[in-house]
Design a protein around this nucleic acid. Structure first.
Length: 263
DNA sequence: ATGGTCGGTCCCCGA
């Protein structure tokens, strides 16, 4: 059996509903991590998504942020509706569930990591603090010794070859050394980045800005990632970036990234 | 086509 798990920043689930439903029907992912749903839970188009066979769990917020998890398999437990480590944090950026896959329990989180611009500044400090919390929590999850997939918009460009022209991004929160170090520390704690594990070719992007003709010029960045515990990484078969989605009418500025696992 | 982002919200902000 295979288990497909995708992550997609949809930039408003209500504005994007036709695109999302079309893609769910085409790609048939088993589990989907959504970010920037930009709505409260009550206004999430739950019935339309459930009609396609998904269980739906949301952590919404009015106007900004918001994450969700869709699963064709039963959701055993919603283990977290916020990233642990700061009870003052009111932004909806993290949800974690345990699903009952055919192979057994699989833990999946949907992550919307703070953008952090402008840097330096308070927004950048919030990003770095959030990454430290994520590092701590992600390390704690490894004790379960189960497949863990942390999917999301990490707002982080791992390598210079993950952007058209790294020089243009000099100083940006998505590429700064402190951001990259924090991301690397999460990986060193025991996670592998799915796209890199399967070859990680240069200039394969997951986001193209709406502005300045970024899409027609292919001036993108790779910031949407799937982080895997060893129990998930051992089962990874392939990673797909659904680039064509960006060319559709009323597209999100991000495209889905989907991992297929022998699970 | 004499311009050139989008979404949500509220008269501008975040990305």
């Amino acid at each position: 059996m295979t288990l497909s798990i995708a992550t997609w920043n949809v930039n408003s689930i209500r504005a994007r509903l036709p695109n999302v439903l079309d893609w769910l029907i085409q790609a048939q992912p088993d589990v989907v991590c959504l970010q920037e749903i930009k709505t409260v839970d009550e206004d999430f188009p739950r019935l339309e998504v459930e009609a396609l066979g998904y269980n739906v769990e949301t952590v919404g917020q009015k106007g900004y942020n918001g994450v969700a998890l869709l699963s064709k398999y039963p959701v055993e437990d919603v283990s977290h509706r916020a990233l642990p480590g700061d009870c003052e944090d009111e932004q909806s950026r993290y949800i974690e569930v345990v699903i009952s896959a055919d192979s057994g329990p699989v833990r999946v989180a949907s992550i919307y990591l703070p953008n952090g611009n402008p840097a330096p500044g308070p927004k950048y400090n919030y990003k770095l603090a959030w990454m430290q919390r994520l590092k701590t929590h992600a390390a704690n999850l490894l004790v379960f010794e189960e497949p863990v997939i942390l999917g999301g918009d990490y707002n982080l460009i791992p390598r210079d070859s993950d952007v058209h022209d790294a020089a243009e991004w000099q100083g940006d929160a998505l590429i700064r050394p402190e951001s990259r170090d924090a991301f690397a520390e999460i990986l060193w704690s025991g996670y592998s980045e799915a796209f890199m594990q399967v070859g990680g070719r240069a200039h394969q992007y997951t986001f193209w800005d709406y502005q300045a003709g970024a899409w027609p010029k292919n001036h993108g960045i790779r910031i949407d990632h799937l982080l895997l515990s060893s129990q998930a990484a051992d089962r990874l078969e392939k990673v797909e970036i659904h680039k064509a989605v960006r060319g559709e009418k009323k597209a999100s500025d991000h495209v889905p990234v989907m991992g297929v696992f022998a699970l």
